[in-house]
Design a protein around this nucleic acid. Structure first.
Length: 440
RNA sequence: CGGAGUGUGGCUCAGUCUGGUAGAGCACCGCGUUCGGGACGCGGGGGUCGCAGGUUCGAAUCCUGCCACUCCGACCA
């Protein structure tokens, strides 16, 4: 992408409403724009990152055997009356009336609708297990939205729902999602710790929240810090096999949110040297809730014995838009965002230090073509901004590698190659720089 | 939902107490000089001061109502 043709409204000054680093940086980097309390427009840079995160989540869901669907954002109130949640959910649910005076709602979650979809088609245990997921906008009318996309009212979420014939099979589905989540967050450069959690309005008796440790998080958490060093399941983890060992390994060391924290057990099980009491950002939560929805909504299958029974369900959420905030909280410095390569909006920044200089333009053009061909998604700053402004903007938006091409370097047969994270710079020939950047 | 605040150009803010016909910096446009880590000079454009009433010769400023947004707390798959 040539910056001169892009839409990247970076701000030199910090908008006054932003209190935490990720919110400030997302506004300054021109990723989002607030349109109402807790409601944001996604500008091109923010959308690129959102799509990358979405795609990682999708790949890991698919790998774990889940199947993607897309449900509408608006749902009929009658559906929620079946489960009894229409009246229970409260003011957080945005209720809408259409021209025929029908009651609708903007979905805050989709257990009812997915149960309705499932029951319409599935009758036999032979069709199980099934796991359906979607990545779709949700709306929860929070009393107090804050922290930018970390706690918006409208947010982008992956929600998966598992259906099994009995509780034992349901636990296997739960373990598959648990394992997939470990991989998903690790691919984004995050260490997300599964912690025992309350189930809240979703219901059920088995649930873990995946928490990224951060001082600016909203949840207070207690854990054995050795959990931070546990191994992430590999690419070829066998989702058809028994994942109990992985889940046990990750749930044996103490880790709990404040709501379910047991101080006595914590002090008994965790040596003082390993205790970690901090705050965290919830980026995902998994639930197993059995027949909470299938029973009232009559989602039943016939078992091997010919007897109909409610399916055993679980639901599994990942806050896709919230993850942008979490990643930035975990990875930034004074100058701006430091994207992990897997979610970076652009792979390489090309800084043309002198617009109009034929030799500089030619070198930039060559680099741009080579990097584009190699799939490195270069962002070429071909504007006539001053060099200092270009350096500052490129650091702010966090492009991992920067190729700096100016008249002095070209005259000496060199370009500058800079790593955003380490700040290391070196002068090499253009060919050497391109060889390094296009490798791997 | 309790408490505290704020709304003035795209951004950050001054001006409000003490009413007199709207400002600064950044950003933007033109010209020139510049150019290797957020340049400088000169000239220029852009705001019914959140909205609606009221008081007054005159309202960004005072009064009333409403709306939006922010912060602290409670709440929060």
């Amino acid at each position: 992408m040539r910056l001169s043709r892009y839409f990247l409204p970076v701000l030199k000054e910090t908008p006054s409403e932003a209190q935490i680093a990720s919110h400030r940086l997302m506004l300054r980097a021109g990723m989002i724009r607030q349109e109402a309390a807790g409601i944001y427009a996604w500008l091109p840079l923010g959308l690129r990152v959102l799509k990358k995160i979405e795609q990682i989540v999708r790949e890991e869901m698919d790998r774990a055997g889940a199947v993607e669907v897309l449900m509408p954002t608006l749902q009929l109130a009658d559906l929620w009356r079946e489960s009894g949640r229409y009246d229970d959910y409260g003011a957080e649910m945005l209720r809408i009336t259409d021209r025929h005076n029908r009651e609708l709602l903007y979905g805050p979650t989709n257990e009812e609708m997915i149960t309705e979809i499932f029951r319409a088609s599935v009758r036999s245990y032979k069709d199980l297990p099934k796991n359906l997921y979607q990545i779709q906008w949700k709306f929860r009318d929070e009393q107090r939205p804050r922290f930018g996309v970390m706690r918006g009212r409208e947010f982008f979420m992956k929600d998966a729902y598992s259906f099994d014939v009995d509780e034992e099979a349901g636990r296997r589905s739960y373990n598959r999602m648990f394992t997939a989540y470990l991989r998903t967050f690790a691919r984004m450069g995050l260490t997300a710790i599964p912690m025992r959690a309350e189930t809240g309005p979703i219901g059920g008796d088995l649930s873990h929240e995946f928490i990224v440790l951060a001082e600016t998080g909203e949840s207070v958490v207690f854990c054995d810090e050795r959990v931070l060093d546990l191994p992430i399941p590999p690419d070829d983890v066998d989702y058809e096999g028994d994942l109990t060992a992985i889940v046990d390994q990750w749930t044996t060391l103490y880790a709990a949110t404040e709501d379910v924290h047991e101080p006595e057990r914590y002090e008994r099980e965790v040596e003082p040297a390993h205790r970690r009491e901090t705050r965290g950002i919830e980026v995902g939560q998994v639930f197993f809730f059995g027949d909470k929805y299938s029973k009232p909504m009559k989602a039943v299958v016939s078992g091997p014995d010919g007897v109909e029974r409610p399916v055993q369900m679980g639901s599994y959420g990942v806050g896709v838009s919230r993850l942008l905030g979490a990643i930035i909280e975990a990875s930034h410095d004074e100058a701006g965002i430091i994207w992990p390569a897997s979610v970076a909006p652009f792979g390489v920044g090309i800084l043309s230090l002198r617009k109009g200089d034929a030799a500089v333009e030619a070198a930039c053009e060559k680099a741009y073509r080579a990097l584009t061909a190699a799939g490195k998604e270069p962002l070429w700053d071909d504007t006539d901004e001053r060099p200092g402004a270009k350096f500052a903007s490129m650091d702010l938006i966090g492009v991992p590698k920067q190729l700096i091409i100016g008249p002095k370097g070209i005259a000496a047969g060199e370009v500058e190659l800079k790593d955003r994270k380490s700040g290391e710079k070196k002068n090499v020939s253009l060919e050497a720089a391109l060889a390094e950047l296009t490798a791997a």
